[in-house]
Design a protein around this nucleic acid. Structure first.
Lengths: 342, 342
DNA sequence: CTGCTTACTGTAATCGATTGCATAGCTCGC
DNA sequence: GCGAGCTATGCAATCGATTACAGTAAGCAG
């Protein structure tokens, strides 16, 4: 209907006040008298005024948006985290930008550009596998305080971060399998070099030691968080002379691939081998057998990350709240684990 | 390292030219002589200049970003489409904003605001279930040409759209089941009112008729694209006196839930009943049994949508390319379908 | 009644890049 | 040798909101 979008000037003219007053009415109503406030409100109504973000962003030196960086958009693990982030951001008038690392590289675009360009006020990175030069560029920018890692992180850097209790979750898993009666427990790991892989692997070994269990080197099967890694791991398991009777997988996707491949080879879970995962993705519940897993509250993780980022954007020097948050995980017992056959 | 980000002015000063020349060098090099061009390039280098998007956006009246609207961020079906969109956008210097419809409503934010606010130059909507007033607001804006539907669409509106061959895919599926030898074929539908649900349902019925097959009303089981809908449908199937021996599900998620629940009840797929889905999501291949499905090229769908949107942003009056694109689908045969038992 | 505070409101500079118009120097044709 | 036609560059207005600073009127104490 409105052919041309109207500006603050238009509203000011209609209301018979200055643009300053209109601006104040909109962003700082306390400074404006009751009567002008209603007059301006009417003018805003009649003109159909909508604020121009570009102008505001320029003047306030804020982009009013945050960038979320994923290793891979096509991974369902991240979607709920995004939902959590988005929920918090949009409540504060912020927009959520998304970029995936592989793509950023391909197009020659650099992450740091989002900050330098004033395209984003901060970023939440869900990928601990950034290359060294990218990390260095982020560390050396004056805006480093507005960079935050979620889920994953990078050892030896000072970035703020949110993560789940990977170690405790892992030890809980091992202890649970032990409590079921299993004594020979294996582990399919994440990709080598990945921080989550290390955290979970190390905690796994520690707990096995603490429980005084046997651990053959071949029972630790290298993987990479994917369905396919699970399939490959199943092949390894099938070829073993002395097989672990329970397997803790570093991710649900691994566990599902592992079970699928075993099933295709006539091995029954949990009768022949107990399998559990980590993450508790949506599919875990629906798989056959339903997957026992360590639950991560991804929604909360996303919200926490967004909240922390906003605090750091608002006061980079002295942000309210934590520098690092660690969220609780919980054991979810389903049908893929059982007592060993007598 | 650089304490303060430098501006065009700084570069101009260092290079000994005017800001106009620097701007032209950057955005329209042909207008500038070889020698100044290199001089400016050096100055850009030494000052570490990064363009300020907010300023550019204000002046050019472009946000240089596009909004993608999803019904639900947590649905893995969309991730690959996003990847496709993002790939095309970032190649052209555009950023990708994400919002989910449920959330936009909750926060009182309106989709149209993204356009009116100059936060986005256009939007790709993956949700055909927008409420009437939202649709009306989008139709009545002068920017309606920059709104595009992908995957889903809304009947009776003039928005551009990209979609897959839902009808042909469905008819292919039915014919395939028929060719296997099945004569009693059922269908689990999407949510009532959804355009995809209608397209697939109608095509299903048409093809059944064309093949002269029996179709009992109860063989059409209402669902809603989700895993749970599949589970519920399985319960219905189990309760039937005269069961269809093959079931075409309106989505892979339905099909997986359906199979899972059947399996839990001792029914074997495909021996006891053939099941197939639509979409060919990642999990389809890894499920046990691997799911026969109709493949949608979601990456291409995303890229096509982005391409069409860019064309419409560049020239809203007379966009190059199609107003509606329909992408081919293909049958992927796996293990969840088989000839009926003799 | 005077001077000071308080509560609003207006003026105008500002954020940083883009671009229409003006200008200067050069080439070229006749 | 003169004007037309380029090419390369600069000047300055502009996009639309925010905000420091200034000004005005009313309220109030003394």
């Amino acid at each position: 209907m409105v052919a041309k979008t109207s500006t603050l000037q238009d509203v000011a003219r209609v209301a018979g006040v200055s643009t300053a007053t209109v601006s104040r009415t909109l962003s700082n109503p306390d400074l404006v008298s009751e009567s002008t406030r209603t007059r301006v409100a009417k003018a805003v109504q009649s003109t159909g005024y909508r604020i121009n973000r570009a102008a505001r962003n320029l003047r306030t030196r804020r982009a009013h948006s945050a960038l979320v960086v994923l290793p891979d958009l096509a991974n369902p693990f991240f979607s709920e985290i995004l939902e959590g982030i988005s929920r918090h951001l949009s409540g504060r008038g912020y927009s959520m930008l998304i970029a995936s690392t592989n793509q950023v590289h391909e197009s020659g675009e650099r992450l740091i550009d989002y900050l330098d360009n004033a395209r984003a006020d901060g970023m939440i990175i869900l990928d601990g596998g950034l290359s060294d030069d990218v990390v260095a560029s982020l560390e050396n920018t004056p805006q480093a305080g507005r960079v935050l890692f979620a889920c994953e992180w990078i050892e030896g850097t000072g970035f703020a971060s949110v993560r789940s209790e990977n170690r405790r979750g892992t030890r809980t898993a091992v202890r649970y399998l032990h409590d079921l009666g299993h004594r020979k427990i294996g582990h399919v790991t994440g990709p080598s070099g990945n921080v989550l892989m290390h955290a979970r692997h190390d905690a796994f070994v520690e707990e096995i030691r603490a429980l005084n269990l046997e651990l053959k080197p071949e029972w630790i099967i290298p993987g990479d968080f994917s369905l396919n890694a699970g399939c490959r791991a199943a092949t390894s398991w099938l070829e073993m002379d002395d097989r672990p009777e329970a397997v803790f997988c570093a991710s649900d996707q691994i566990a599902l691939g592992f079970i699928a491949e075993l099933t295709r080879n006539g091995v029954t879970v949990p009768d022949d081998v107990s399998v559990m995962g980590f993450d508790d993705i949506d599919f875990a519940e629906q798989f056959v057998p339903a997957l026992t897993s360590i639950h991560q509250d991804r929604l909360l993780l996303g919200e926490t990350a967004a909240k922390m980022l906003m605090a750091r954007i608002d006061s980079p020097e002295d942000p309210a709240g934590d520098h690092a948050a660690v969220l609780p995980v919980s054991l979810v017992v389903r049908d893929s684990t059982a007592r060993p056959k007598p």
